[in-house]
Simulated assay, not measured.
Amino acid sequence: MKTFLKDTFFPFWLKHGVDELGGFQERLKLDLTPYREENKKRVLVQFRQSFVFARAYQLTNDSSYADAARRGLQFAFESYWDSDKGGFLHALDIHLKPLISNRNLYDHAFALFAMAHIYDVFKNEEGEEHLEILSWINKVSTYIDEKFKCDRGYYEYLDANNLALTNPREQNPHMHLLEGYLALYEFVGDQTYLDKASELVTLFCTYMQEPKLGGVVEFFSSDWSTYDEKLGDKIEPGHCFEWAWLLMEFSRLSNRSDVIQAAKKAYEFGVRFGYDQAFGGYFNEVNRLGEVSNEKKRIWPETEAIKAHVSMYKNTGNISYKEMAQRDLDFLLKNRLNENGSWKEHLSRELEDQTDVHPSTTAYHLLMAFLEFEKNS
């Protein structure tokens, strides 16, 4: 796995993922040239890819990756942060002008996640770079508390004036905010971040998990009391695995065993109803009863399943979970990854390639799975 990361994965992203316009490419065409048709550069991509290159530097000691991580982070700070009203703009156009000025909780969650990892990588380097990162962590965390925080959880979206937008409540941004806070607690060490993580875990256990079968529901009413009328029957097995892994991580960092049962229920739902016994891989969507509603298969649920299998193995010592992780990794290597370093983003149920573009955000999912498997195999 280390050989693949050093010889194929990281060089691919350094060659094709860096954008001459600034920051990182949003998407790649199948011929690996930039996909510009959307005329959009999201701040999310800048943070996810900065994380990838920082960890690449840590694993290889190649300064070109460190330079890419630093440039990407600085590009995000300079080009997306609203110095007057605070917050990161959601997207620029390809001329680096504001395109979507709304603030998304999802974006800010990944800002915290990326900065936590980058701080961990560069904290022992010469100079005071790590102090600047700590300053930005405090700035972004404070902004989230002041603008996104509400009575139950956080607003998912704000407009350009930091006013909350009315939408169904969503588990996904809260899930990644938990990921960001856990990374901050682990790498920065401030108890405040673990306390914030604990609040999100309570929100999950109270509202987000369907109580009978344990699936993670995507959309809710404004007060979380009911599932959203139009979208509340949607469950993504990949998110069940992500929550299972995060809850296990929370348990590890907090020494709280009371969340393990919720983690296992989410995990078991994903395996029972998400895995395709006939062809392998995981369905994109099922409903609350576990009935398949979208039988196509994106790549990221497979990476999240690998992480969850590993967590279950670490927690129980049951070798069957390790075997499932190996099975899914073998499936990924056989059916997803191409020799030139690209990948098959979309497959039909029968594993026919339906990829149209390569989203750069996939790199985060792949690297997280590879790192988790490698350090626990």
Rank of each mutant, 00 (worst) to 15 (best):
L333H: 14
S377E: 11
H309P: 02
L231F: 14
C240W: 02
L89R: 14
V259C: 11
E132D: 12
N315Q: 15
D7L: 11
F122C: 05
T316H: 13
E339H: 14
K307Y: 08
E291I: 15
F113S: 00
M368Q: 12
I133F: 05
L371V: 10
E229N: 11
N61G: 02
L213G: 00
S79T: 14
V292Q: 01
I235G: 01
D328C: 09
T166G: 01
Y181E: 00
P98E: 01
H358F: 15
N338S: 07
R71A: 12
W224N: 01
G22L: 03
R327Y: 13
K307I: 05
W81Q: 04
E128N: 14
E78M: 08
A183E: 09
Q25M: 15
E249W: 04
E78S: 13
P11K: 07
K139T: 15
G238V: 06
D328G: 03
H358R: 03
Y143C: 05
S135I: 02
Y35I: 03
H358D: 00
V121K: 03
S342V: 09
A263F: 07
T202Y: 11
L30F: 06
A116Q: 02
F204L: 04
D67N: 13
Y106F: 13
S141Q: 09
N39D: 14
G86C: 09
Q49R: 07
R152I: 15
L194A: 07
Q49D: 03
T206Y: 06
T226A: 10
L200D: 04
A263T: 10
R42T: 13
L32M: 09
Q74V: 14
S198W: 04
S63M: 07
F220K: 03
L247P: 04
G317S: 11
F113C: 01
L73Y: 13
V310S: 06
R298P: 01
L105Y: 12
E20H: 13
D159F: 05
L367V: 11
K123A: 04
T362Y: 03
E242R: 11
K40Q: 08
S360P: 02
I118C: 06
L231K: 15
T355R: 04
